[in-house]
Design a protein around this nucleic acid. Sequence first.
DNA 1: AGTATCCTGGAA
DNA 2: TTCCAGGATACT
Length: 280
Amino acid sequence: MPELPEVESIKIQLVKFLKNHTILKVEVHNTKYNITGRDVVGNKITDVRRFGKALVIDLSNDYSIVAHVKMTGQFIYKGPNLRTKPVYTKKVVGGVPGKHTHVIFTLDRGGTLYFNDYRRFGWMELVQKSKVNSQNFIKKLGHEFLKDLGLAEFSEILSKTKKPIKVLLMDQTKMAGVGNIYANDALWMAKINPQRKADSLGKKEQTALFNAIESVLKEGIKRGGASELAFVTPDGGEGEYQDFTLVYGRDGEPCKTCKTQIKKIKLGGRGTYFCSKCQR
DNA sequence: AGTATCCTGGAA
DNA sequence: TTCCAGGATACT
């Protein structure tokens, strides 16, 4: 569920909590995460960046830590600079540290960063800085919404495929940032049926959809992301977009425009919510 | 284009 | 006890 707005919310806090802090110690409790203390300890965190749904933690040496939280990965910070008392809700499954805590970074000045992931779909890799852009995941990313993906390129991509439009929107290699929640909501806002073949959209529909995607992503960022499943920010807080979704998760509820019951179907293996009257 | 896979916890 | 959740990849 973490999509662009959720990962952006994580990134903003990681910058605040980690930037210019030195890593004193790292504990890795699972071989899936190849973080070697030799290349990390003693180095300062110089920046935290986001590419699509991936995070890049830059170190003062030649390395960066590239990470993806997938659906249930969580970066949790404990230490100074927390503005309010952290919540650490039940969404932090197992607690921190706990049975699902796989990597622990001890920072100077009393901070600790935990990586928790109860399903272990997420990953973390130590990558040479010069190779971040060619890293397996990053190099495959398409241009990104709210960043370097413009309407012209968006139209071009749509016109080249007969895949259902919703499946295409979630294809990170074509366009980066959108996942299931925002794909559903943007299609509702643009009044386009998620099953439509991408190349069947007219110019007006392409434009409406592009604007709708940027709109829901901005709203998501403004709401601090959607805390479905396991999403929490490093300070333990939750987003609130889940309370403002347009159709996502609202099957059986009346459409906010026409009161028709929202339907739920499977499309490309994913739960898909839409109004069969408004979305054509 | 659809399905299995990774994995766990919570809901039906 | 079975099913379902969503991100991404591998396979059919």
